[in-house]
Design a protein around this nucleic acid. Structure first.
Lengths: 207, 207
DNA sequence: TTCTTGAAATGACAAATGTCATGATTTTGC
DNA sequence: GCAAAATCATGACATTTGTCATTTCAAGAA
């Protein structure tokens, strides 16, 4: 399996090369350090998999990836990044990347590479929550604790995000309308938002 | 890595067992043949991964999976199936399964198992096309024409979905605030919605 | 017990929102 | 040119929304 690695941190790319080549059957055939090089290397070497940092100086991995996939629909690109970012995850999905892995999670790199090689798509845990229509009914614990939101507040946010008016929320949760207003007021303050519409938007962006 | 296999075709489950145990580090600790057994086996054995047919007589793999994940949020379930089905794929995703693999694709089974074990999610190529559109920056043409929305109306909707107030939208688009209100009123009527919050929600659900 | 804390409610208020009727202006088709 | 459209604007109005100060009440902690 031929692999090209592209990362603007040389240290990362050479460590990756070592890790990968410890495995028989894997061969790192090229190393690059920016988006432009990624495109050139891909064209020249046609690797089975392109392992690329999503964030790089100059042309980002995403841009490069989009271009490469445009040229070769079959291209198998696995993105690497050090942190999970909403925007990136969704975009990576959109351009048709085969996967997305956090660098921290280096043990899962080889199995993921193989799975991708064999036609699977591999994504970290985070991806699922970022996909709109598959939302569950409530915000993830991780998101809510980060903002000190109580259980009840979450319930209210969820109702707002379902498009209910204060009166309707009051009926649903057996509270008075005024109480619901108070809750929302507090929530908006906590989240630094202005009105319920922004709150609903927040919900959909963090779910 | 401890694995439990559940498939109503004994032939399949025993072949799988053989394939898996050829790999060092993998141990099939239990085999079941229906959803009910899957639940019992999971409770009793707490395997690292549950490899389960999605379609089975009696309780389906999907139902069993939902129940198991309900009991143990950490449960790692990888579904197996012989054909790709829209319903199933999306449902599997929704209940929180870690993956979905076609039986035909047996070479990718082991790498996929490992990737899942290490915290990834693995899905076949098909999945992507089945996932409702991920949101980008504007409504798709298809969506807007379906509702007879004009160019200007789309602009307004977009601003609402960005969380702007009427006054802000007016400034952005060089209109009076009243005009913006009128536009929104018409849009809400067209889309059968009640207020701007529902409009923002609509936007994020159709984008 | 008394004190404190948190959840829920109230009422008053200003601001934002949505609806409606109407009118001015511009664009477009014929 | 003229009529029929969009397009943009107003003003009046009822409702909803968000803020704030204050109160009630119950459960714990002292």
């Amino acid at each position: 399996m031929h692999i090209v690695i592209v990362d603007d941190d040389k240290l990362v790319s050479s460590s990756l090369k070592m890790i990968l080549e410890a495995e028989t059957g894997l061969e790192v055939v090229g190393i690059g350090s920016n988006g432009q090089e990624a495109i050139e290397l891909y064209r020249a070497l046609k690797p089975d998999i392109l392992l690329m940092d999503i964030r790089m100086d100059g042309m980002s991995g995403l841009e490069a990836g989009a271009k490469i996939i445009e040229e070769d629909q079959q291209a198998k690109i696995l993105f690497l990044t050090t942190f999970s970012d909403n925007e990136y995850i969704v975009k990576a999905f959109q351009i048709g990347a085969k996967g997305y892995i956090l660098k921290q999670n280096y043990e899962s790199l080889i199995p993921s590479l193989k799975a991708v090689y064999l036609g699977q798509r591999v994504f970290g845990e985070e991806i699922v929550s970022k996909i709109p229509t598959l939302h569950g009914d409530s915000l993830r614990k991780s998101d809510l604790t980060a903002f000190n939101l109580s259980e009840k507040e979450i319930q209210i946010i969820t109702q707002v995000a379902n498009g209910l008016s204060n009166k309707e929320i009051a009926e649903t949760l057996y509270l008075s309308e005024g109480t619901v207003r108070n809750y929302i007021s507090v929530i908006l303050e906590k989240l630094q938002l202005r009105d319920r519409t922004q709150l609903a938007i927040f919900y959909y962006k963090h779910t």
